Deep mutational scan, measured.
Amino acid sequence: MGSVRTNRYSIVSSEEDGMKLATMAVANGFGNGKSKVHTRQQCRSRFVKKDGHCNVQFINVGEKGQRYLADIFTTCVDIRWRWMLVIFCLAFVLSWLFFGCVFWLIALLHGDLDTDYKDDDDKSKVSKACVSEVNSFTAAFLFSIETQTTIGYGFRCVTDECPIAVFMVVFQSIVGCIIDAFIIGAVMAKMAKPKKRNETLVFSHNAVIAMRDGKLCLMWRVGNLRKSHLVEAHVRAQLLKSRITSEGEYIPLDQIDINVGFDSGIDRIFLVSPITIVHEIDEDSPLYDLSKQDIDNADFEIVVILEGMVEATAMTTQCRSSYLANEILWGHRYEPVLFEEKHYYKVDYSRFHKTYEVPNTPLCSARDLAEKKYILSNANSFCYENEVALTSKEEEEDSENGVPESTSTDSPPGIDLHNQASVPLEPRPLRRESEIGSRR
Rank of each mutant, 00 (worst) to 15 (best):
N7V: 05
R8V: 06
S13L: 07
S14A: 12
E15M: 06
E15C: 05
E16F: 04
E16N: 05
M24L: 11
V26E: 14
G29K: 08
G29N: 13
N32K: 08
G33L: 08
V37M: 07
T39F: 05
R40K: 13
Q41A: 11
C43V: 14
C43G: 13
F47Y: 08
F47C: 13
H53P: 11
N55I: 03
F58M: 15
V61D: 15
Q66C: 15
D71Y: 04
D71V: 06
W81M: 07
W81F: 12
V86H: 09
I87Q: 13
F88L: 07
F88D: 11
C89Q: 05
A91T: 03
F92I: 15
F92E: 02
V93I: 12
S95P: 03
L97H: 00
F98S: 04
F99M: 02
F99S: 02
G100W: 00
F103P: 00
L105C: 06
A107M: 03
L109N: 15
D114G: 15
K118H: 14
K125A: 14
V126A: 05
V126K: 03
C130H: 02
C130L: 03
V131H: 02
E133T: 04
V134L: 05
V134W: 01
A139R: 00
F141Q: 05
F141Y: 12
T147M: 03
I151S: 07
G152L: 02
V158L: 04
V158G: 01
P163K: 06
I164G: 08
I164L: 13
V166N: 01
V166Q: 05
V166L: 04
M168N: 05
Q172C: 06
Q172P: 01
S173H: 04
S173D: 03
I174L: 14
I174R: 07
I174A: 06
V175P: 01
V175E: 03
I179C: 10
D180M: 15
G185W: 03
A192T: 11
K193Q: 13
K195R: 11
T200P: 14
L201N: 10
V202I: 06
F203P: 02
S204Y: 00
S204L: 01
S204E: 00
S204V: 02
H205Q: 14
H205N: 10
H205V: 07
I209A: 01
A210S: 12
A210H: 07
R212D: 06
R212T: 03
L216K: 01
N224G: 08
L225P: 04
H229K: 11
A233L: 06
H234R: 12
R236S: 13
Q238I: 10
S242M: 15
R243S: 06
I244V: 12
G248F: 03
L253F: 04
I256C: 10
I258E: 00
V260D: 01
V260S: 00
D263S: 10
D267I: 03
I269D: 04
L271H: 05
V272M: 15
S273V: 12
T276N: 07
I277D: 00
V278P: 00
V278F: 05
E283A: 13
D284G: 09
D284I: 13
D284A: 14
L287R: 02
L287P: 02
Y288H: 02
D289Q: 12
D289E: 09
L290Q: 03
L290K: 05
S291F: 01
Q293G: 13
I295Q: 01
F300H: 01
F300T: 01
I305C: 13
I305G: 06
L306P: 02
M309Q: 07
E311D: 05
T313D: 13
T313L: 10
A314Y: 08
T317E: 13
Q318V: 09
R320L: 12
R320P: 02
R320A: 10
L324C: 11
L329T: 03
L329M: 11
G331C: 00
G331N: 01
R333E: 12
E335Q: 04
V337N: 04
V337W: 02
F339K: 12
E341S: 07
E341G: 04
E341Y: 10
H343G: 09
Y344G: 10
V347N: 08
D348E: 07
Y349D: 10
Y349E: 09
S350D: 11
R351Y: 13
T355S: 04
T355V: 10
E357H: 03
P359D: 14
T361S: 11
P362W: 03
L363P: 15
C364S: 06
C364T: 04
R367M: 01
R367V: 02
L369G: 00
L369F: 10
K372I: 03
K373H: 12
Y374A: 14
Y374I: 10
S377R: 09
S381A: 09
F382H: 06
C383N: 15
Y384V: 15
E387H: 01
E387S: 01
A389K: 13
T391R: 06
K393A: 14
K393Y: 06
E396K: 08
E397V: 11
E397K: 07
E397R: 10
N401R: 12
N401I: 11
N401W: 06
G402R: 08
G402S: 13
V403A: 13
V403Y: 08
D410N: 09
G414R: 10
I415F: 09
D416T: 09
N419D: 13
P424N: 09
P427K: 04
P429F: 11
L430C: 12
R431F: 14
I436K: 08
I436E: 14
